[in-house]
Design a protein around this nucleic acid. Sequence first.
DNA 1: ATGCACCCTGTAGCAACTACAGGGTCAAGA
DNA 2: TCTTGACCCTGTAGTTGCTACAGGGTGCAT
Lengths: 136, 136
Amino acid sequence: MKIGELSRATGTNIETIRYYERIGLLPAPHRTAANYRSYGDPHRARLTFVRHSRDLGFTIEEIRSLLDLSDDPARDCSEADRIASRHLAQVEEKIAQLTLLRDELARIVGRCRGGVAADCRVIEALGDHGHCESAH
Amino acid sequence: MKIGELSRATGTNIETIRYYERIGLLPAPHRTAANYRSYGDPHRARLTFVRHSRDLGFTIEEIRSLLDLSDDPARDCSEADRIASRHLAQVEEKIAQLTLLRDELARIVGRCRGGVAADCRVIEALGDHGHCESAH
DNA sequence: ATGCACCCTGTAGCAACTACAGGGTCAAGA
DNA sequence: TCTTGACCCTGTAGTTGCTACAGGGTGCAT
């Protein structure tokens, strides 16, 4: 299939597909006589893997490691588990951070009573960390 | 005070301070005879505002708007409230997204039973969105 | 006078794309 | 046959919010 079809089949921007090829995440496909890229099912599967992993927040480098792993079926699976577990921990930490941040923001937003900027509690709170209830 | 002192006083990297000046977020300070930047308390307050807002996840452009607002004390505070509320909504959406993602990751990680990559459930799950329980 | 901490400008790098500019290819319709 | 339009190509530059140099100047203490 041509790049446009692969793009539609995987929900990936054409520029992004070419970008993945350039950084070596996807192998260079065959070319037609007109120099068009021509993909097969293995390419589609690999790109699906990449997109799904990106959707789950894995970095390109993590995905590279995971792909290396799946390219070599004899290798130990524990590395994949380690990468995914570390990522899970990072996501959990991010959630915790954002939750603190949300609480702080909610407190700030809740203080607005209208009026002019000179008396604005939102602006005041942003200018003074001392108003905050938690570290962030 | 010199840039190093301002840096220590606000916990901001020196390069970042110069960057903020370059993009017009902080006004250019006076210079000493030796061409050193020389800051006063208003600069420090403004930088504190910026850093605090960044810590809370506001973008540079949002901060620019908030600063414009606080520079003009006669203006209506509702715009500040609107910016902060919208940001709060974004943070809440991000938390919701990450929570879905965490659940998906936890499911994937939980499936690893060791063994070789050929049988790896982690890698299998990444390659096939069909295993997922929710959209992401 | 010499070492050292500090300051200056300007540019390039990071992640992970995205958006052109400027061109080539191909099939369908007038 | 010509032309229109959709598609493809390469290469480069932009995005966000910094961070990290390189290569130089300044100021104070020993």
